[in-house]
Structures are given as structure tokens and as C-alpha cells.
Design a protein around this nucleic acid. Sequence first.
DNA 1: TTCAGATATATCAGGTTTCGATATATCAAC
DNA 2: GTTGATATATCGAAACCTGATATATCTGAA
Lengths: 122, 122
Amino acid sequence: MLHLKQDHSEFVVLSVLAEGPSYGYAISKEIAARSEGAFKLSASAMYPLLTKLEKQGLVTTSWEEIKAQGADPDSSGRKRKWYTLSTKGTKRLAQHIETQRRVVKILSAFAPDALAGGVGMP
Amino acid sequence: MLHLKQDHSEFVVLSVLAEGPSYGYAISKEIAARSEGAFKLSASAMYPLLTKLEKQGLVTTSWEEIKAQGADPDSSGRKRKWYTLSTKGTKRLAQHIETQRRVVKILSAFAPDALAGGVGMP
DNA sequence: TTCAGATATATCAGGTTTCGATATATCAAC
DNA sequence: GTTGATATATCGAAACCTGATATATCTGAA
């Protein structure tokens, strides 16, 4: 299982948010699901990262109160913080994709036999 | 220009050493050359990394005295530290290549249109 | 009904890594 | 002689990741 870091984390989170708003816990699960368990973004890495994205204006946020079925209307319930990709975030994602392409292409120059044909080939 | 970090740095350095022994400064230049200037591994990242590789037994080292043409035979001259890939290092490089393949493959699941076909395609 | 496990967010200390600056010293070329 | 390239290395500041910890709620099985 590969622990995501820095660039990959940001790319993957923005990528998930590109399909619609989501929140920390769900993003974490989505990453594990889409990577078939190969990628892991831990909670202690996730939340600081989301805060950073918010500060940079790549996402906007809003809180949701989660009421249980038949719960006391006055009870506070659980809270859920939704993250929505901003225009700036969309642009950043495009940059990440372009960078990733470049990196993969150049890395293949350091291991031609092994990496060439490694992606998108039949 | 992309600054290499952690995993990529190690992979690229081992990859260069796989073609024969080399030394810090030359490795740095080789990386810049092979990536057409796109990758940069700074000296302050290079030397700690090489020391780490040595401690892990992935490379073996030896010092060379560089004498200038017609220089005083007693002068100390410059020193050059050669790094040679060990058997363990060769195995590690193979692991890196395999990991890199996996990562690229899985990342493409997060940006299918953009990354699929990005490497090794006509 | 009780209790474990999942949901949900967040912070902290500790360790690693990276960057930019700095240091030292030799060599080649002009 | 003086600039720029060669060559290795360390330092402090900053950024980052991990594992642990904290808090609190909801769901489902025993």
C-alpha cells in the first residue's frame, strides 16, 4: 500500500473533487476505492491538506449538519465539511495533469525498457 | 524546471548508476542532460541522498585523487567520490521501476483522458 | 440494549526531507 | 589574476508525513 505524499495527494484530491463536491472522509474512501486499495491518504494528512487547499483558494467550503433519522431536532448531530472545487482549483488540476505527463515521459528516459509501454498500452 | 524529491530522486540516481559508476557532480549533470533540463537535483539534496544510499548498502564508494596535468605530485589535488551500484542497489532499482509503473497506472484512473496514452504511445 | 465498528473532523509531537545559503578548494581559460 | 566551472559538504528554516491521540455520533449485530 502506497502512502501518498505532497504532489500526488493534491492531484488526487483535486481529481476527486472535479467530479463534484465531497468531504474529507468520503474523499479518503474514494481514493482507496479508485486505486483498489493501493493508495492511502491518512486522516492526519488529509485534513491539513484540505485546509491548505482552502487557504489557497482552490476549494470553497461549507458545513452540513447531519441529523439522524428521528433524532431530536435540537441535538447538534454530526458535522460534515463539504469541499467544492473552485475555478482556480480546476486550473491547478489541469497543471497537475500536465506536470504528471511530463514527469512520466521524462522518467521513462531513465528506464526505457521498463516504463515505455507501461501506461495505456494494450 | 521540476525539483526532484524523495522517491524520484532515488530512482533517478540509481538509474544513472546502473550504467556504470559515477560521482555526485557528474550524476547531477547527467540527470539534467537526460531530462533535457527538466529535472534538477540540487547539491544540497544530492549529497545527503548519496550518503543515505551508501548507509543502506545500495552503493559502494571509493575516493579518487584528481591530479592536474603537470601538477606538483605532492599537492593533494581535488578529490572525487565514486559511487558504484551494488547488487542490493540493482534490486532496489527494479523495485522502483515496478512501483513507478504501478503509480502511473493507478494515477491514470484519476485522470483517464489526460494520462492514458501519455507514455509510449505513437 | 449494549457494545463494537464505522463515520467524521482535527491536532500534536516527532522524525524526515528539502531548499537556499554558505563554506572550502581546485582547475581551466581568458 | 580573476572569473566561472568543477567538486563535496553542512547548516538552519521550512514544509511535510506518520502515528497517536482526542472528541463525538451513528449503525448494526449479538
